[in-house]
Computed example of a mutant assay.
Amino acid sequence: MTVLRLSRAKVYDLLRSRQLPSFTVGRSRRVRAEDVAAYMRNRLEESY
């Protein structure tokens, strides 16, 4: 949430729609830094 500067609800929407890959550790949902960077890069490319 902090890196993407998005609300918790929006991040969960991205996870549910599989636009942002994640994995589970116990009861916590984790997202790799590389996946966050790839998501941001793709969004920037789409905006041009």
Rank of each mutant, 00 (worst) to 15 (best):
M1Y: 13
T2K: 10
T2H: 09
V3E: 12
V3D: 14
L4P: 02
L6I: 15
A9I: 06
A9Q: 10
V11Y: 09
V11T: 14
V11K: 11
V11D: 10
Y12I: 00
Y12W: 05
Y12C: 04
D13R: 12
D13Q: 13
D13V: 11
L14H: 06
L15T: 02
L15G: 00
S17G: 07
Q19I: 04
Q19T: 01
P21Q: 08
P21D: 07
S22N: 00
S22D: 01
S22C: 02
V25W: 12
S28F: 03
R29Y: 04
R30F: 09
R30I: 05
R30G: 03
V31I: 13
R32P: 09
A33N: 08
A33E: 13
D35G: 04
D35N: 05
V36D: 06
V36S: 01
V36F: 06
V36G: 06
A38P: 04
A38N: 04
A38H: 02
A38S: 10
A38V: 07
Y39G: 01
M40C: 04
M40K: 01
R41Q: 05
R41N: 10
N42H: 12
R43V: 02
L44Q: 06
L44G: 00
E45I: 15
E45Y: 13
E46R: 10
S47C: 05
S47A: 08
S47I: 04
